[in-house]
Design a protein around this nucleic acid. Structure first.
Lengths: 124, 124
DNA sequence: TCCATAATTCCATTAGTATGGAACTATGGA
DNA sequence: TCCATAGTTCCATACTAATGGAATTATGGA
């Protein structure tokens, strides 16, 4: 199939729109102060992660409220969970954060060249 | 003043918490499908930007709804506006996007080394 | 001054999100 | 089996955000 034509561009539009929905949902998950605090805490505890009780006491968030927030982050794959006995260990999901960062980077620096890469990263 | 002690760490905590609030608000602004579509469109029209009427017809969003979204993006400094006659030209704000990208990058790659910089950027 | 165009603001409606106590479920140890 | 600990789910309440038609404001041209 030729990489052009009406069918092709319709497919591309659809793909782009699904992408927009997906990343908007991820941004929304990070777009609440308690959840962004959770993400920062989990990143600082990376790669071991933390158990719910410790997150709760560290951030002073009641466990049921916290559970709702963790659920939302989990739905967007921003965190991963593993069980160890009675404890659940939550970790930040590098794969998803990488995708999100990659998306923003592509939009700003690659696709539209609105921002110079050097302004974000200093890589020698 | 010594860069340690209770007062210093209290200040640092406060600063970190304000930062969290600020970036959470920016994520929230990008965390709605219509607004993320607006940002992508403005980035693709960068640096000229677009007038409201054209954004409205391109994205098929009624002007009053669009106006609300633009207002929210403007409140988080994610877009800039300039008037030319009766038209308002909206542009993506590179400064803010750069800050946002820088924040995410710092959290994931620098501060916590959860993600390898090379996985985001390919800089030669 | 009057009119047309551009965009915002007003307003009401609807929908979705956040919060946290209480009840429940899961797991492992005594 | 019974208990303690860890977390989730249920549920009700309160808030906040999204939407879009109608009215309003801003700007410039005839």
């Amino acid at each position: 199939m030729k990489p052009e034509g009406a069918a092709w561009s319709a497919m591309k539009r659809k793909q782009e729109s699904e992408e927009t929905t997906r990343f908007a949902d991820m941004f929304a998950a990070m777009g609440a102060e308690p959840r962004l605090r959770i993400m920062r805490l989990l990143l600082s505890a990376h790669p071991e992660g933390m158990i719910v009780g410790d997150i709760s006491s560290e951030l002073e968030i009641p466990s049921s409220t916290l559970s709702h927030h963790l659920d939302k982050l989990k739905n967007e794959d921003l965190v991963n969970v593993r069980r160890e006995g009675t404890c659940l260990w939550y970790t930040a999901s590098c794969d998803s954060l990488q995708e999100l960062l990659g998306f923003l980077y592509a939009e700003c620096c690659t696709r539209n060249k609105a921002i110079e890469p050097e302004k974000i990263v200093c890589c020698r």
